[in-house]
Amino acid sequence: MSGTCETIMASNQTLFSYVLRLADDHLILSQRLGEWCGEAPTLEEDLALANIALDLIGQARALYAYAGQVEGKGRNEDQLAFMRYERDYQNLLITEQPNGDFAHTIVRQFFISAYMDPFWRRMESSKDEMLAAIAAKASKEVTYHLRHTSEWVIRLGDGTRESHERMVEALDDLMMFTGELFEMDAVAQEMLQSGVGVDASDLKAEWQHTVQTILQEATLELPKAGHMQTGGRTGRHSEHLGHILSELQYMQRSFPGLTW
């Protein structure tokens, strides 16, 4: 009897962790994209980037709210998003990488969208109803993100010599963070086995196919996979995350416990 209870507790803890890390991915990436507001190369692109950021923040909110529910300690979306310490954030390292120039932002978003597109599609058949529902919405939205960033990869790769060179550099800089996308740690394994989670390692082939098809049209190449840097899922981040959090959390930390 008590054994069963513990299993449920453990699996709730795992589900909490699984949902929370997904939420962190989306929050941190949207925070980065939000930095582009008013800074994009064209007014049209300003609107597009803001829109993608908005989709991501909406997805993050649904995920945080659900994580809070699963945890059952009464923490709401804001307490989870704003009131944790640096090492507690479990986002993928690629999401916290600086915007750099427009090429870096596009490559980062392209890499992630090419991953999240099949990820959400598979999540739609999760045994967890809430995750499946969030996925149904998100997968429609990420389809667009992938299309939009693919178009830019092609424009910039095929455009001018300068844009091509900037793309090569961006691909080189970000390649090392793509290995982490496909990692399956104990949390992900457990979620996969219980029919809740997605087998990220199984998305690699599709990701490579998508990325390579677009890069080819863009006259670019995917850099050779060298050392892959990981650590986000265990809270071992790059130095950038601390600065993101110092802005993100500023109000909540300065005025603790207030309603806005």
Binding site: L43, E44, L47, A48, A50, N51, T143, Y144, L146, R147, H148, S150, E151, I154
Partner: peptide, 28 residues
Amino acid sequence: SKRALFGETLVTCPHCGSGETERVSEFG
């Protein structure tokens, strides 16, 4: 297809009904 790259939908002008329109921005 929503996945088709560089696609543009043909839209009729709600003001005069003409089909001769062009997209200024994918987002408003």
